[in-house]
């Protein structure tokens, strides 16, 4: 199975190191979390994670994260496309701005967005006049999560798009394909792995976000209370095990979802005959 690529050296070294580092930084600490959660025992674990308030928070956390990741998928591709393919005044500044959400502490982002979308904010006032409530409503959570996940799709698609060889598009065009066909049949398939990666990362990042969301969500139980906040309130009661149980559930969901996305990506690469 591995023989085909055996010419390339470094299999043992690169993967060995990657696995060791992943274990030390990610796997062992997460195992500590799992151990703490499991220490509750099956019945209590289930009682904690299946509590209606917890279930309502999963729906909100995952729903808002998926919505935000979808928005970022569409607009991230658009932004990456415009930044790579077109030239316009201020392009470099626009490019530089994309990473802003990473650098701004999430709490600052939350405060700034709440100020903008609150009742007396630049956007919030007019929107509320139209009957749209953003801050202190689920929509506000989506806004915050879109903000913090914005760089992912742009930055994963950008290098791949820049690296695509134009001959392919020229060939497609010379064979009579129109621009939309070329995009759909030639460009999009090549971009799918990067798009999926960006989507997965934006989603993953959004699911667990705490700092920016607590400011804008209003934190109302059953309505705008995200799972990380529930975890936080368990910790306030020194209930480490209960907090860990919820953490384990979130991890499990995220792991399965990410695994599905990565499998999809693998499959799309295979279909193209790469990888």
């Amino acid at each position: 199975m591995m023989s085909r690529n055996r010419v390339i050296p470094g299999f043992g070294l690169s993967l060995g190191y990657a696995t060791l580092y992943t274990s030390l930084i990610v796997f062992i600490p997460l195992a500590a979390l799992a151990a703490e959660g499991i220490s509750l025992g099956g019945e209590r674990f289930w009682a904690v994670v299946s509590h209606p308030q917890a279930v309502a928070s999963y729906t909100l956390s995952f729903g808002a994260a998926l919505t935000a990741a979808l928005i970022n998928l569409v607009f991230g591709l658009l932004v990456a496309w415009v930044l790579v393919r077109y030239s316009f005044p201020g392009k470099r500044i626009a490019d530089a701005l994309v990473d802003l959400p990473f650098a701004l502490p999430t709490a600052v982002a939350g405060i700034a967005l709440t100020a903008l979308y609150g009742r007396n904010g630049w956007f919030g006032g007019p929107l509320e006049a139209l009957g749209l409530k953003i801050a202190y409503a689920p929509a506000g959570i989506v806004v915050a999560l879109t903000f913090i996940g914005l760089p992912f799709v742009v930055r994963t698609v950008q290098p791949v798009l820049a690296g695509l060889e134009r001959e392919l598009e020229e060939a497609a065009a010379s064979l009579g394909a129109d621009r939309w066909q070329t995009f759909r049949r030639v460009l999009l398939p090549a971009l799918v792995p990067a798009l999926l990666t960006g989507f997965a990362l934006a989603f993953a990042r959004a699911v667990g976000e705490y700092g920016s969301v607590v400011f804008i969500s209003g934190n109302m139980p059953y309505r705008t209370e995200i799972t990380p906040l529930l975890i936080y309130s368990k910790l306030e009661q020194y209930d480490y095990a209960g907090a860990s149980a919820l953490g384990v559930m979130m991890l499990l969901f995220s792991f399965l979802l990410l695994l599905a996305i990565n499998a999809l990506q693998y499959w799309s690469l295979r279909r193209q005959g790469g990888g």
């Binding site: 202190y136 607590v214 400011f215 209003g218 934190n219 109302m220 139980p221 906040l229 936080y232």
Partner: peptide, 8 residues
């Protein structure tokens, strides 16, 4: 019921 926002 009269509380619209529960800050942390």
């Amino acid at each position: 019921k009269q509380v619209p926002v529960l800050d942390s």
